[in-house]
Amino acid sequence: MAHDAREDTVHVEFTLNGKVVSVEAQPADRLLDTIRYGLALPGTKEGCGEGECGSCTVLLDGLPANSCLVPTYQVRGRTVETVESLSEEDVAPLLRTGATQCGACTPGVVMTATWIRRHPEVLEAQGIRALMAGNLCRCTGYDGIVEGVEALVARETGG
């Protein structure tokens, strides 16, 4: 059924971190705000509000996306994963390489890194530095992040 959302709300049901959730969203709501304020998962950060810094990266149907550029109504029936879905074990290699300093870019970095870990075949076409370029970091100079992703992938592939 086609939906006509006027000034009223849109009923949005989607899978968030493995659980089905539903929210009543305004047409203008961004996924970032819905997650942070509506669903009280503040791990996902806003850095620039224009899809440049990647701090708000979530996995949308398994692919990294800037949640500041996703209208909430567009995730009806889809799958969203945020940093809150991960465990200590998932991120441990990133700690050992110094991938986080101030932590503001980190949740976005971790989500892109998680995507690469799950799809190491993407590294056949592009390097880690190119794939991570959508996650700006002002603290680490990137070495800690790049080495962390290498360690994550190595653990996954037994390399």
């Binding site: 791990g43 465990s87 200590e88 991120v91 441990a92 700690l95 986080t100 101030c102 932590g103 980190t106």
Partner: peptide, 22 residues
């Protein structure tokens, strides 16, 4: 020694000022 608050940051659990509801 590893970064003390590192895991908290890596898991998005560190609460910055805009993360705390008023």
């Amino acid at each position: 020694m590893e970064r003390r608050e590192g895991i908290s940051k890596l898991l998005g659990r560190e609460l910055y000022i805009d993360d705390v509801p008023m």
